[in-house]
Design a protein around this nucleic acid. Sequence first.
DNA 1: GCTAGAAGTTGACGCAGCGTCAAGGTCAAA
DNA 2: TTTGACCTTGACGCTGCGTCAACTTCTAGC
Lengths: 252, 252
Amino acid sequence: MEWTIQELAARAGITSRALRHYDRVGLLAPSRVGANGYRYYDSTAVARLQRILLMRRLGMGLPAIAGVLADEVDPCDGLRAHIAALEEERDRIERQIRSVRHTLEALQAGAEPRMDVMLAGFNDRYKDEVISRWGERAFQVSNDWWHGKTLDQQRAWKQAAEDLVAAWVAAAKAGVSPTSEHARSLAARHVRWLGQIPGTPTAEGDRERSIEMVRCLGDMYVDDPRFAGMYDDAAGATFVRDALQAYARTRM
Amino acid sequence: MEWTIQELAARAGITSRALRHYDRVGLLAPSRVGANGYRYYDSTAVARLQRILLMRRLGMGLPAIAGVLADEVDPCDGLRAHIAALEEERDRIERQIRSVRHTLEALQAGAEPRMDVMLAGFNDRYKDEVISRWGERAFQVSNDWWHGKTLDQQRAWKQAAEDLVAAWVAAAKAGVSPTSEHARSLAARHVRWLGQIPGTPTAEGDRERSIEMVRCLGDMYVDDPRFAGMYDDAAGATFVRDALQAYARTRM
DNA sequence: GCTAGAAGTTGACGCAGCGTCAAGGTCAAA
DNA sequence: TTTGACCTTGACGCTGCGTCAACTTCTAGC
């Protein structure tokens, strides 16, 4: 019994193009090739194709399948490795799903825009490589931390941020001096608020880098229009920067 | 504040090539391009890049991201669709894992070679399209059915198959006539055994196609060397075929 | 001012697994 | 003999960049 390429393809639920591809890559040669170049497949080829399709449906790549079929030693090993890979992939997707869900929930709760801006600070602005790398790591940590919180926790943290911003804006509007005691206490509150985020130098008790970070954040608030908008206007951001830097100079 | 392509890439943890790619596909254009052609990125671009990378880490494709960033209407919709896609993907992988596990366990239990041959019958040999399509569907159904069984159930089913084959071989060796009562009872047992598999015409009570299938299977047992080996030799397979076809003619 | 080296540019190929024309040869039925 | 179905090879396309290659530009040290 023999089949043409189309017959075999129809039977196997694939296309003739795939069969030609398998032929080209040496995975499945036709059992016979007519003088006209036509490919014909017999039951041996069918059996091999079935094994190929089985492994394909299991998500294995063609080279891997070729390997299994080549050294027919122990398909169990290949399957076990494949299971491990699949489980890893599944776990990765699980984490992705959780992450996207949190993002979605946070978005729906309206917590996103400012959080985005807040967290953006941790991997944007550090100038030399070392600090850049530290910033990256910090972003990873803080991002994981954020997505690890419950919605209620996120709301609470966001509320604290709102309150803090509101206090800053009020102080700036009131014409308070950046070096005044009130401004310093706000700066201290700001630093404590930042210190809740694991991975930051403040949270890690690294005084040297805490100071650097606070100074850097202050500059960032002024430079970045998103922050300026957040602190009501450019003057507000300038006020915050000055207060933070004064606090960093004298109290940290 | 402005960054060169390398600086931004290092900070974002990607390569400059990726940034150029984003530029080319219109996902992220540099905020400024120098007279020398150099790309420079400002904080606006950085913010956009961060959103891009966020979605990228969530596994979204570049066109999808571009879509979300383009019609800034409701990123929630995009995320929800993405979650659905991820869940589907996860379920698919889950099914794959179960399938591979079963395959592995069956392989370890030594049940594979004959089962492979048994099930192969359901989508190999039907000649015209219609029956071919029916055969394919049957293969899907029976395959799912097989992988849905527990190991013990699989072992039991396999044992029944072994017993059946042994009985066939014994009868063939004893020189029994294919039309004898003993051969007919064996054929009946064979058909009942096949009828356990959902998706087959026998299981579905389709008498017409049951007969056709039994006749076809008989031919297959003779044509295919794998079956010949299973029934001890070609003569054994011929005996089985004749007995099955005699049964199909007179009792079904 | 010169030169080395680092970093920038565009262009093009490669990857996996086929889908999808395109251009032309073969086969079976009418 | 025509027609239409099916076969062949060849080549491009898709995703998201990695990886040369060849060339220009900037930066730093002499």
